[in-house]
């Protein structure tokens, strides 16, 4: 119970900070924070799977589905309410994740990484060819409304930011509980020793499938918010390099701390926007060097957390 109230206190503090920041920050920073937090949700989905030893290179699939839910609903159904859109995105990702999760749960390591990547590339291919959905140009997304409230300008940025902050804190709290739960502990056990988990009587496949579905929903929510914040969606959301950036953030943050994922994601967005201004052609290089430095200099830290020891270490 103590830990439970700790989570509550931490969440309220985080929320208070975020809300206070919302009224203090300039509009460009609000936008950047919104994107950073929303994308962090997608990376958090990778972290959920990393805790069981899997790295998905295809979270762009759900990110893209979420974003297209926003775009399609606005363009074809006239729906702009952010609560409804988020709900639809979650349901859509639940359905797709529920379909592919049990299939992908049979795979491990690079097979899992690359098959999840392939799935997102299929969506990329489909969307690029569908001219009714804008093809490679994508769709513009109408500004969201908030249960009837239709803000504009700075009020819109602020509303979206506050909405994102609430969602992010709520999800962070739920996931912390989940990480400390039986399922969370069994996930860590799967990461360490699958064989043992099966020989204790739990299904590794089920564990992986559940984590995949959770990550699907997180990806969808991240996508719907990003689509609404940017006001435009295109197939690039599902491209493998987009997924790669989510993996980058997950590696940077590691799987132990949830707030670290948000921080890492916001750092990435900051680096991206400054690089775009000052050195547009080398920003990926900066990321690449950064990634290598993390993996190389922390052999027993973040990077080595992926190293699965096959036996109890004798």
């Amino acid at each position: 119970m103590k830990a439970f109230s700790d989570i509550r206190v931490a969440s309220l503090l985080a929320l208070a900070l975020l809300v206070a920041g919302g009224f203090a920050l300039p509009e460009w920073a609000l936008f950047l924070m919104t994107i950073g937090l929303a994308k962090a949700l997608v990376s958090l989905g990778i972290v959920v799977q990393m805790r069981a030893g899997l790295v998905s290179f295809g979270q762009g699939l759900f990110f893209c589905i979420g974003a297209y839910v926003a775009g399609l609903m606005a363009n074809f159904a006239g729906l702009t309410d952010i609560f409804v859109l988020t709900g639809i995105a979650v349901i859509a990702c639940l359905a797709v994740g529920g379909l592919f999760g049990p299939l992908l749960a049979n795979y491990r390591g690079i097979f899992f990484a690359m098959l999840s990547l392939s799935l997102s590339m299929i969506l990329y291919g489909v969307l690029s060819k569908m001219n009714s959905l804008g093809g490679t140009d994508g769709l513009n997304v109408a500004a969201p409304t908030f249960a009837g409230y239709a803000p504009e300008g700075r009020a819109l940025s602020l509303s979206l930011y506050l909405y994102t902050s609430f969602i992010v804190v709520a999800i962070g709290a739920v996931l912390r509980t989940g990480f400390d739960s039986q399922h969370g502990l069994v996930s860590l056990a799967v990461r360490s020793n699958e064989l043992r988990v099966e020989y204790l009587g739990a299904s590794v496949r089920r564990t992986n499938a559940i984590n995949y579905v959770i990550s699907a929903m997180l990806g969808g929510i991240g996508g719907v918010i990003t689509g609404l914040a940017i006001g435009h969606v295109d197939p690039e959301y599902a491209y493998w390099t987009t997924s790669g950036e989510f993996v980058f953030v997950a590696i940077l943050a590691g799987y132990l701390s949830i707030p670290a994922v948000f921080v890492a994601s916001i750092i990435l967005e900051l680096v991206r926007s400054f690089s775009n201004l000052y050195f547009p052609n080398t920003w990926q290089m900066v990321l690449g060097v950064f990634l290598l430095v993390i993996i190389l200099t922390l052999p027993n830290g973040l990077g080595s957390l992926f190293h699965r020891k096959r036996e109890g270490g004798s």
């Binding site: 860590l188 360490s192 020891k309 109890g312």
Partner: peptide, 9 residues
């Protein structure tokens, strides 16, 4: 024969 334990726990 080789104990199967969760080494990170």
């Amino acid at each position: 024969q080789i104990p199967q334990l969760c080494s990170e726990l």
